[in-house]
């Protein structure tokens, strides 16, 4: 297994403001987590928080080690709840989208 994995990550619904005001990112992250297990979405979230997020307001993205309420996670255009949620093991080239729900009208 190669040491790294390439992914597309996208932030929308205002979350891009927490990530240098850029929606689309191509990232290269370790293919396994510190415990040696294959990188899953839980590890991706931690990794993004530590490596990609410059904004100090971490609680606007994570809460209790997962994404905060009001954020949908889409894996290759499907709700992550259809894919195993945080346990989904990432595949090279996967596209993961984080969507903050809007409330205005």
């Amino acid at each position: 297994m190669p040491d790294t994995i390439d992914l597309k990550v996208e932030f929308t619904g205002g979350l891009e403001l927490l990530f240098s005001n850029q929606r689309k990112h191509r990232i290269t992250m370790p293919s396994s987590n510190p415990k040696g297990r294959p990188a899953n979405v839980a590890y991706l979230i931690t990794w993004l928080c530590d490596n990609l997020m410059k904004d100090p307001r971490k609680d606007m993205f994570v809460l209790d080690d997962s994404v905060r309420p009001g954020i949908l996670v889409l894996i290759n255009d499907a709700d992550w709840e259809l894919e195993g949620e945080e346990k989904y093991e990432l595949q090279p080239g996967d596209e993961v989208v984080f969507v903050s729900t809007l409330h205005g009208g």
């Binding site: 205002g14 606007m60 905060r68 309420p69 009001g70 729900t101 409330h103």
Partner: peptide, 20 residues
Amino acid sequence: CIFPKPPPAESVLSCGEGGI
């Protein structure tokens, strides 16, 4: 079903605050 928990109040922007 989609959003079992409400978002933190400080993450909620209105059109008056955020613009539209």
